[in-house]
Design a protein around this nucleic acid. Structure first.
Length: 383
DNA sequence: TCTGGGGTCCTAGGACCC
DNA sequence: TCTGGGGTCCTAGGACCC
């Protein structure tokens, strides 16, 4: 019996596939998306041709270049990938309204009680024919098993796991395949002699509690082939952030503040586009030695203007001075998000002036592009 | 041979309150 | 002289995911 029919659809080497689709001369060749050799960065995605050379995502570009010097290196074009993603999810929603987007290239579908394999196959064919990229699907009776099946069926594949086969499947599965078991936890478990989900499932509840604390019940379920997490089509975003790593480390406070202002504007723009406001804004600073710190602050009333976000960011940033090391990365984030309409109008009165400035700026950006107008701070000074 | 950018969730200490 | 017991909010950091 299938309690539910869950499909995980995951695009294959997504960014690289889109680039190959749009640039026929890239097809059949190792394509590495993330940056040009010589630049700072890691591989965001790479084609299967590139993987033959040992290149994989999250690998520094410099190392990828040593492994595959004749590869095609392209920068990321998130706007383009987001657009393809949106077409992809429109296709999924033709088959069921219960679609949950978990990332730009990956989504869960609940098609209960329909036949999962036929639907997954139909979706794969439609995406291939109308978008020109391939997706892999995993079909099972719960989310995490659908996901694991898809990961084992890549690329351009379709994997199925029926409830009656779950026990046998999990018995020899490495624990690192379970969601939430990353490298650190897998290492800890290995030192205790636990390598497979079968071994994990044989441990007593008291062991789970000391090892996993609050998440113990969840881990016990996963080990037993149980995952009650529903597919939720209306997942609300919890935070918005923008960050940038400099080509060369920066020490000048003035130019760092200019970057912080630009990031504040970008975050504010995305925030308002989704008709949200926030109560908390924060910054992220990574120094040249890679030590990273975060600072955040909350205000008593919700806000969404660039100036207020930058006001928080600037104050937090200056509170870190004096800086002992050059700065490698700066980031700005907002959280404690609320939908603007539900915020009491009274609360917005104080800050109304800045809200309207931001609205005017948003419409100018839309009409004339981002260079049209910006906060005084964000205008880069020429050296 | 250095280490991107965008997220989620959990922990843990201190403030604050009853 | 030793200092309750909970609950919630805020902040910083870390593990994990794509």
């Amino acid at each position: 019996m299938w309690p539910k029919v869950i499909i995980l659809v995951d695009a294959d080497a997504f960014y690289a596939s889109v680039e190959q689709r749009d640039n026929p001369q890239y097809r059949g060749k190792p394509v590495i998306v993330g940056g040009k050799p010589g630049q700072r960065g890691v591989v965001s995605a790479c084609s299967y041709e590139a993987r033959k050379y040992g290149v994989h995502s999250a690998m520094p570009i410099s190392r990828a270049y040593r492994l595959c010097p004749h590869g095609i290196y392209v920068g990321t074009n998130m706007d383009k990938y987001r657009a393809v993603s949106s077409e992809m999810f429109d296709i999924y929603r033709k088959y069921t309204p219960l679609v949950e987007k978990v990332s730009v290239d990956e989504g869960y579908l609940d098609v209960t009680p329909a036949p999962g394999v036929q639907i997954a196959q139909a979706i794969r064919e439609e995406v291939r024919d109308s978008l020109g990229i391939t997706v892999t699907a995993g079909v099972s009776y719960c989310r995490y098993l659908a996901k694991i099946l898809a990961s084992q069926s890549k690329p351009d594949g379709l994997g199925v796991l029926a409830p009656e086969d779950a026990k046998g499947f999990l018995h020899s599965l490495p624990v690192s395949k379970l969601p939430g078991i990353g490298p650190k936890t897998a290492n800890t478990l290995r030192r205790e002699g636990i390598n497979t989900v079968g071994q994990l499932g044989s441990m007593p509840p008291s062991w789970f509690e000391t090892r996993f604390g609050k998440t113990a019940p969840r881990m016990m379920e996963l080990a037993a082939g149980v995952d009650p997490t529903p597919v939720n089509p209306q997942q609300q975003v919890k935070s918005i952030s923008e960050e940038t790593t400099f080509r060369e480390d920066q020490s000048e406070t003035e130019s760092l503040l200019a970057v912080l202002a630009q990031l504040s504007q970008d975050v504010g723009h995305r925030l308002r586009k989704q008709e949200l406001c926030c109560r908390t804004a924060g910054i992220k600073v990574r120094y040249s030695d890679f030590t990273t710190l975060t600072r955040e602050t909350s205000l008593p009333t919700p806000f969404s203007s660039d100036a207020e976000i930058f006001g928080c960011a600037k104050e937090l940033f200056l509170s870190l001075a004096p800086f002992k090391r050059p700065v490698r990365l700066l980031g700005v984030s907002v959280k404690s998000l609320e939908i603007v309409k539900t915020v009491q109008p009274m609360l917005l009165q104080d800050t109304n002036r800045w809200e309207s400035v931001s609205e005017v700026m948003d419409s100018l950006h839309l009409k004339h592009g981002k260079k049209m107008i910006s906060l005084g701070r964000a205008i880069q000074r020429k050296p």
